[in-house]
């Protein structure tokens, strides 16, 4: 089970901040989330949304383990 974290407007849209999802890749995780909640699925692929796996930004697909932490980071607002 990968640990999934949502931040900022994505958290409000989904109605949750953190959950566990059984997925072995980022692509699988995204399709599982999109199948459950199409609006969230679209927002996760939205402009400027970055993805961090274990706190490092990744582009494209990435393998996930049961201990992976996946964070969806919408455009950052600065402090």
């Amino acid at each position: 089970m990968a640990r999934v974290l949502l931040f900022g407007p994505l958290r409000d849209l989904a109605g949750w901040r953190e959950r566990e999802v059984a997925a072995t890749s980022l692509a699988e995780l995204r399709s599982l989330l999109a199948a459950e909640d199409a609006d969230l699925g679209a927002a996760l692929g939205g402009k400027g949304v970055q993805i961090a796996v274990d706190q490092a930004i990744v582009r494209g697909d990435a393998p996930l383990t049961t201990r992976s932490e996946v964070a969806f980071l919408p455009p950052m607002s600065g402090g």
């Binding site: 407007p9 950052m76 607002s77």
Partner: peptide, 11 residues
């Protein structure tokens, strides 16, 4: 940098 690009989300 902090005002424009730091990883914060502000409401």
């Amino acid at each position: 940098y902090l005002k424009s690009r730091a990883p914060f989300w502000k409401k």
